[in-house]
Amino acid sequence: MDLETIATCLNLKVFSGFDQLKTEVLDGYTGDLLSDVMANSKEGDLWMTRQVHQNIIAVASLKDHAGIIMVQGAEPAKDTLEKALKENIPVMGTDLSGFEIAGRIYNLLKEKQDITRIDP
């Protein structure tokens, strides 16, 4: 499932990385501690966080995340947005809480897997 499908299904705002929305989302990661996300997230993860600091762009870039979703109505800080645009990292936003958005994305990705399993 690509970012665009998820963004459309869940009505996400897109702040940056407009031409990267065909990127495939392999899995999700929820976390607000950068050291944890650096250590435990994987390539292709869609990262959900409440952090707005510009360091999140560097983390997403280093870990080759599919993109970032800022939860609970958060929006990127000015320098975060500038960096995201410059590095072309997709940053999106939702008014939903971290739990709620994780729940929905988890089940979207799972549904997709189940369908693939039945009809490859």
Binding site: D32, L33, S35, R50, Q51, V52, H53, A77
Partner: peptide, 19 residues
């Protein structure tokens, strides 16, 4: 300002210091 912080890494590890 939300998001502004001068917190040390110790404070951040505790789940605070996010401004």
């Amino acid at each position: 300002q939300e998001g502004y912080s001068t917190a040390t890494s110790k404070i951040r590890e505790m789940g605070f210091g996010a401004g």
